[in-house]
């Protein structure tokens, strides 16, 4: 065995500029699945019924698994011998690139379901396309996560229908959640400069182009759920470029606590 073997950093086929873009984008995806996985994991032990407690933990586990693959790739792209954990635990909120939607608090079950549903539709469509990326690593991660995301979308779509077309109370709660969360859906499809350049280079899908399909799915599910699609809502944005809500700081305070309190140790 060659003990001195250093793995070739990933992304050597790219010029440094493009590699930096790819790193930026991979971090964006990783931060997104980490923060949503973190939020969902807060439900563990507190779900509305045992069976759904298990379901939410499964989705959280899928997302954390996806996160790890992405951070590992990002660490290689960066080539500064940082680890997946360094990237998750030692970056500041303003350097996190997740969209605002995923950091929103769990609220009641209706909030969690709606947040998940809005995200799952986007996640599903994105991964479906990203599987075809000429970047082999992203394509492979996307292919694995796409199967999981298909299940997540099915799960959250059905719950939106159940809550929308359930009782008066469940509908009222879902509408309240809509009032809080719909305004964060636009950012999912708003391309950052990084995304635009990578999309132009054909490395990642044009996420703006995913919007019509997403809208069609939302419309279909909402129709079954007897809900109306909100119109003319002013969309929030900023998370993807580090302008977060106040919630993210608290998430990271908790998430990063041990690594910050005891720097550089193995756990």
């Amino acid at each position: 065995m060659d003990l001195h073997h250093t793995p070739t950093p990933a992304g050597q086929e790219y010029l440094p500029e493009k590699r930096a873009l790819l790193l930026d984008y991979t971090l964006q995806l990783a931060d997104t699945s980490l923060i949503l996985g973190h939020r969902l994991s807060e439900w563990c032990g507190h779900g509305p019924i045992l069976e759904q407690d298990l379901a939410m933990a499964n989705i959280a586990l899928d997302l954390i698994g996806e996160t790890r693959s992405l951070y590992q790739y990002a660490a290689e792209l960066e080539g500064q011998s940082r680890t997946e954990d360094d990237l998750a635990y030692l970056r500041e909120a303003v350097h996190y690139k997740n969209p605002l939607l995923v950091e929103q608090p769990n609220g009641d079950f209706a909030h969690t379901i709606l947040r998940q549903f809005l995200f799952d539709g986007y996640h599903f469509l994105l991964l479906q396309q990203l599987q075809n990326s000429p970047d082999q690593r992203l394509a492979a991660i996307a292919a694995k996560s796409f199967k999981e995301a298909s299940y997540h979308l099915k799960w959250s779509s059905e719950w939106v229908i159940r809550l929308g077309d359930g009782t008066e109370e469940s509908k009222a709660r879902l509408l309240k959640a809509m009032d809080h969360l719909w305004m964060f859906s636009g950012e999912l499809f708003l391309m950052t400069e990084t995304e635009q350049q990578l999309a132009q280079a054909g490395i990642i899908p044009d996420s703006a182009s995913l919007l019509p399909q997403w809208e069609a799915h939302v419309a279909k599910v909402f129709a079954e759920a007897t809900l109306e699609v909100p119109q003319n809502v002013f969309m929030q944005k900023g998370g993807k470029i580090g302008r977060h809500s106040e919630h993210l700081g608290y998430i990271l305070t908790e998430l990063q606590y041990l690594q910050r309190a005891y720097p550089g140790l193995e756990w």
């Binding site: 069976e51 759904q52 298990l54 379901a55 799960w155 059905e158």
Partner: peptide, 14 residues
């Protein structure tokens, strides 16, 4: 426990 068959299948999977 599940409210309907679809949910029962998903719960069984989970």
């Amino acid at each position: 426990h599940a409210a309907d068959a679809e949910m029962a299948i998903q719960n069984a999977r989970d």
